[in-house]
Design a protein around this nucleic acid. Structure first.
Length: 295
DNA sequence: TATGCGTGGAA
DNA sequence: TTTCCAAGCAT
């Protein structure tokens, strides 16, 4: 089936053809610079496209090169990050820009190894930048691709909790010799638009015509793996950190601690969260119990 | 390997 | 309303 060479070639053709006709016109796909691709990948980590778009556009206009961002303060980067979430990503992007200037002559490195060594870049992002910015051939396994392959090849509704070696081997065996970067983009787009987590649109899936989606062929067996535990939110340190960061982001001047005290009642947890933010480099404590984003 | 880390839209 | 989920990384 999928392992068969001829069927695999047909799978490539149908999914890439579907991609050519149905892919979204996203700014980081419009002849964007490697830096712009890298910025988009940082922002898209765990964050929907629709929320990334406006922040990405403003960011690229303000800091069109790694050198431009490296000259800004980390606090400016965190403020420009806005409400994208996970603001440590802004710090890591800033640190990556600085490393690119200092170690790579201001150019986003091309090798997967060099990309992986940059702050905030892991296995997925290194492969994505190498593929989408430089057209290289790498296995690109994000949540979309993992779900698509789990369904097509493993007959499972959802992939394992964490990335397994079996998934890497499967993805490697499915990757075409040529146009691997387009295959990567196409399978990601298929997962994002058609083979979605909640309600896949199999009637519009290019794979459905081939009868080669194992999950579909076996009657959509329900997920039977370990419980996919959702992230706790209410009452967590993360929620508290978010409240504190919102106050500091929205204030043009240093904020007195008494103002931060207003957004979270549990004093012990509030202190712990604030200390954590300072330790992470997201908040800078000043004299007289004043706090601000770092400069 | 399991956990912590933001935010907000959609079902 | 609550729950789920969105192009992961670092530890």
């Amino acid at each position: 089936m999928i392992a068969d060479t001829a069927d695999t070639a047909e799978l490539h053709d149908s999914i890439i053809s579907w991609f050519d006709a149905n892919s979204r016109d996203l700014p980081w796909r419009r002849n964007a610079s490697p830096w712009a691709v890298m910025v988009s990948e940082f922002m898209l980590q765990q964050t929907p496209v629709s929320r990334v778009l406006p922040v990405y556009e403003a960011w690229i206009e303000r800091w069109p090169t790694p050198a431009d961002l490296s000259k800004a303060s980390t606090g400016e980067a965190v403020r420009a990050w806005g409400r994208l979430g996970y603001p440590r990503r802004a710090l890591r992007l800033h640190a990556a820009a600085t490393a690119i200037v200092e170690q790579h002559g201001g150019e986003v490195p091309k090798s997967h190894e060099a990309l992986l060594a940059l702050p905030g870049i892991g296995e997925y992002t290194a492969a994505a930048v190498a593929s989408f910015a430089y057209g290289q051939r790498h296995v690109v396994l994000d949540t979309n691709v993992r779900r698509v392959f789990a369904r097509i090849a493993a007959g499972q509704q959802f992939p394992a909790t964490s990335l397994t070696s079996a998934e890497r081997e499967l993805a490697t065996s499915l990757m075409p010799e040529h146009n691997a970067h387009r295959w990567a983009a196409a399978t990601m787009e298929l997962g994002a638009l058609i083979c979605t987590a909640r309600a896949p649109i199999c009637s519009e899936c290019p794979v459905a015509d081939l009868c080669s989606c194992r999950w579909r062929k076996e009657g959509y067996p329900a997920y039977d793996g370990p419980p996919r535990s959702g992230q706790a939110w209410a009452g967590t340190d993360r929620q508290c950190r978010g409240r504190l960061m919102a106050v500091l982001r929205d204030s043009p001047v240093p904020v007195p601690k008494t103002q931060l005290d207003l957004v979270w009642t549990d004093e012990l947890q509030r202190e712990r969260a604030l200390d954590g933010l300072v330790a992470d480099g997201l908040v800078e404590p000043l004299e007289d119990d004043l706090y601000r984003l770092p400069e």
